[in-house]
Computed example of a mutant assay.
Amino acid sequence: MRTPGIFIFGMVLAPCGWILELTSTVAPAWRTISNIPGESSDLVLQQGLWDICRTYTSSRDIQCKQQDTQYFSAQIIQIARGLMLSSLILNIIAIGVAAVGVRCWTESPHWTVAGIGGLLIFISGVLTIIPVAWYTHIMTSIFSASTDVRVGYCLVLGFIGGIMEVLGGLVMSIGLCRRCGGRKRDERPRAFAVKSTRDPSPPHRVTVPSISSSISISSSSSVPPSSL
C-alpha cells in the first residue's frame, strides 16, 4: 500500500520547519540595531536569544559574545528561550511518533498514531509562532541603544518554520478522522466481504409437485371398479 499523500506532506514539512527553528533559535539575529550614538557609523548590532554580535559593514568583521544585561534580562527573552527549546524538543518527539504511525515498510499505516504525531507537530509550530510574533510586536520597546531597530532574519526563519510545522501537523491530524467508531473506513467493505464468505446463508428449497404423479392419481380415481 502506498503512503498517503497527507503523511508525505507532513513528514517533509516537519523536518524542514525544525531546521529553520533551530537556526532561528541559535543565530544572533532576532533584531539589528544601527546608528548607535557614540559608535562607528558602520556598526550594526545583531541581537538574538543567546548571543549578541557586533558587525561592521565596511570591513565585515564580526565580534560575538557581547554582554548586555538589560537586554537579556527582558521578560520576552526568557520566555522565548523556553518556548523555542520546547518546540524543538517536541518536534523531534512528534516526528518519531509520526514515523512509527506512517510505517512505510508495512502494508498499511496506523492512522491514529500518525494523527497523534501530526497533532504534536502542530503544537510545536504554535510554540514557535508565539514567541516570534510576540518579539516582533514589542521589538522596539525592548531596551536598545538606538532607535534604528529592524527585524532580523531569525524572525523570518522562525515564522516560516512555525508555519510549515502548523500546516504539516494540521494535514497529518486528518488521520484521526479516519477512525469512526474505532473502525477504519477502508476496512469496512473488507470486513463485510469476509463475513459473507465465512457465513453464507443456506439456500431455500422449494418442493415442486410432480405433474406425472398428479395425472396418474387422477386417472386411477376416475376409473370405476369392475363389476363381479
Rank of each mutant, 00 (worst) to 15 (best):
A74W: 02
M164P: 02
S146R: 02
S226I: 14
I215L: 11
I129C: 02
V223P: 01
P200A: 05
C16K: 07
R81G: 01
W105R: 09
L20A: 07
C64S: 03
V151E: 04
T140S: 12
Y135C: 03
I89R: 03
S86T: 10
R103T: 02
R179K: 07
I93V: 15
C53H: 12
H137V: 02
S222Y: 05
C177G: 09
M164E: 12
G181Y: 07
C154Q: 07
W18L: 11
S196T: 12
E107S: 11
V171I: 13
S24Q: 04
I95L: 15
Y71Q: 02
G125K: 03
C104Y: 14
L157C: 09
S87D: 03
S218I: 04
R185E: 07
I121D: 05
D61S: 08
A94R: 09
W50A: 01
P28T: 08
A27M: 12
G158L: 08
E21L: 13
L170R: 06
S201A: 13
L43D: 05
S214A: 10
I129F: 08
G38S: 10
S124M: 10
Q46W: 03
A114T: 01
S222I: 06
L88K: 00
I62Y: 11
R60H: 14
V151M: 06
K195A: 13
M164F: 12
R2E: 08
S214R: 15
I19R: 08
S40D: 13
V26M: 11
L13S: 08
V12A: 10
S220C: 07
M1D: 14
I92Y: 02
R188I: 11
V100I: 15
A98D: 00
F72D: 00
F7R: 05
G152Q: 09
P28K: 02
L127N: 00
S212C: 01
S214C: 04
V26S: 04
I116G: 01
I8G: 10
G38R: 05
T128C: 12
S219C: 08
C64R: 01
Y56T: 03
A145K: 11
T69N: 03
T136D: 13
M11W: 04
L120C: 13
S214K: 11
P189Q: 03
S108Q: 07
S34V: 00
F143L: 06
V132L: 02
T23S: 05
V97E: 07
T69E: 14
R2P: 15
W105M: 13
L170P: 02
L155M: 09
V44R: 05
S220E: 15
I129L: 15
T106I: 04
V223W: 09
V97Y: 07
V206G: 03
V166S: 07
R188F: 04
P109E: 00
T32K: 15
V12I: 14
S221K: 12
L88G: 06
I89C: 07
G96E: 10
L155E: 12
S124W: 06
E187I: 00
P37G: 04
D51Y: 00
I62E: 13
V166C: 12
Q70D: 08
M1F: 11
D42A: 07
C104R: 14
I215V: 12
A14M: 05
V26F: 12
H110R: 05
A98L: 01
P225L: 10
P109N: 03
V156P: 00
P4H: 05
V132Q: 05
V26W: 03
I76K: 15
L20T: 14
S144D: 05
I174G: 10
V206Y: 13
D42K: 04
E187V: 01
L83Y: 01
I211C: 03
K65P: 04
